[in-house]
Simulated scan of single mutants.
Amino acid sequence: MFWTAGACSWCRGRPEAATVYGDPAAWAHRWLDQGADGLHVVNLDGGAFGRARKNADLIRAFTRETETFVELGGGIRSVEDAAGWLEAGVDRVIVSTQAVREPAIVRTLADEFGGERVMAGIDARAGEVMIEGWERCRELPRLGGAVREPRRGILLYTNVDVEGGLQQGGIAIEPVTELLRRVKVPVVVSGGISSPGDVAALRKAGAAGAVLGSALYAGKVRLSEAMEAAHANE
């Protein structure tokens, strides 16, 4: 199933580069009212900048008051962290840095909670995997083994080179197609998606889904148009 989701604004790993758009819950309801298939939430306070679980109450409240699908990333460093969010009502957790360091964590979570509830997040810049809020890197060839080894869960691929960079003109499709060729698990793509054409290109390439963020908040693309591209010919 191909789906698109509203995403929180990401600030390229640097708090001083963040763009503030306002109340997250209000934006979440706005995207749902416009037909989003699900919500992709990145808890920046709990992840890249080291202030764990600051938004926990807000996220829990939102999952209680809505029946929408919510996937959550940011600061999930252990099986216990992931389990806590899943048991609190989040539908899917995204494990990024720890999935690169310890690929077996994805298999462990998938075995306990189901593969559809676990996403390994891979952030790549210039062919290298970035970890710890995009501050450190590992070579991309290590990614293939890390993702294939568990053969469970879903992969979220974020191209850091174009993430949040609206001036750069859309996705970079070549790294996506190369990754899709190398891995066997479903791949959802994030980074640089700024037009219905980008969504259509990812669908054609075989991606399992797409996450829209900055382009939605900046008004560069309408969610309804992206959704139409995502579900064309279904």
Rank of each mutant, 00 (worst) to 15 (best):
A5S: 07
G6A: 12
C8D: 03
G13S: 14
R14I: 04
T19Y: 08
Y21Q: 02
Y21N: 13
Y21S: 12
W27S: 02
A28P: 04
A28C: 06
R30L: 15
R30G: 15
A36T: 03
N43S: 13
G46E: 03
R51A: 14
R51D: 02
A52C: 08
R53P: 00
K54E: 02
N55M: 13
N55C: 05
A56Q: 09
L58Y: 11
L58E: 11
I59C: 14
F62E: 10
F62D: 13
E65W: 00
V70I: 06
V70D: 05
E71M: 10
L72R: 06
G74M: 07
V79S: 15
V79T: 15
D81C: 08
A83G: 11
W85M: 08
W85K: 12
A88C: 12
G89T: 00
V90D: 13
V90E: 08
V93K: 12
V95M: 09
V95L: 12
Q98E: 13
R101W: 10
E102G: 00
E102N: 11
A104T: 03
I105R: 05
R107Y: 00
T108G: 09
L109H: 09
A110Y: 07
D111M: 05
F113K: 05
G114Q: 14
R117N: 06
R117E: 04
V118K: 11
V118A: 08
A120E: 00
D123C: 12
A126I: 00
A126L: 08
V129N: 01
I131T: 09
I131E: 08
I131A: 11
E135F: 04
R138F: 08
P141K: 01
A146R: 05
V147N: 12
R148A: 09
E149R: 14
E149I: 07
G153T: 10
L155P: 00
L156P: 01
Y157L: 13
V162E: 15
G165C: 12
L166K: 04
L166H: 02
Q167K: 12
Q167T: 05
G169R: 00
G170K: 13
T177N: 07
L180G: 04
V183Q: 02
K184T: 07
V185F: 10
P186W: 02
V188Y: 01
V189N: 14
V189G: 07
S195H: 05
D198H: 03
D198R: 02
D198G: 09
A201W: 07
A201Y: 09
A205M: 01
A208K: 08
A215V: 10
Y217M: 05
A218R: 12
K220I: 15
S224L: 10
M227C: 11
A232V: 09
A232F: 01
